[in-house]
């Protein structure tokens, strides 16, 4: 359940920012989670609610923006969309694919006061 560890890292980033910026309350957070990252968004949401309880971000709205998976297909010599690891190239059906996008896990923005 590494979503718990990730949720704790998110809260740490929020708390570091709050300290630096003198924030009193965090209302919302925007995360960008790639389709091919090792994160289950709903599990992350559940864990974040749990770890943020009693913190400056208690009850904050978590907006998770999905970033599409992308890969370079050697056979097609083209970038293609990839919905999940282990799937075939949607153009040629081959597997000579190199993941080029959609693995990110980022905290993008906070709404706070």
């Amino acid at each position: 359940m590494h979503e718990m560890a990730l949720a704790e890292e998110v809260l740490q980033i929020v708390q570091d920012t709050a300290r630096r910026e003198g924030l009193r309350r965090v209302h919302a957070l925007w995360l960008e989670i790639g389709q091919l990252s090792s994160v289950e968004p709903e599990a992350l949401r559940f864990c974040f609610d749990a770890v943020a309880r009693d913190s400056i971000a208690a009850g904050a709205r978590l907006e998770i923006v999905a970033a599409p998976g992308k890969a370079w297909c050697e056979a097609c010599a083209e970038h293609v969309a990839l919905a999940a690891l282990g799937e075939a190239c949607p153009r040629c059906g081959g597997y000579r694919l190199r993941v080029t996008g959609g693995t990110q896990m980022r905290v993008r923005e906070l709404e706070a006061e």
Binding site: L6, Q104, M105, E109, E111, E113
Partner: peptide, 15 residues
């Protein structure tokens, strides 16, 4: 908590 003074902060940090 009031939202009147709420602002948006860009973080852009990997988790």
């Amino acid at each position: 908590v009031g939202h009147s003074s709420a602002r948006i902060l860009r973080i852009e940090q990997d988790i």
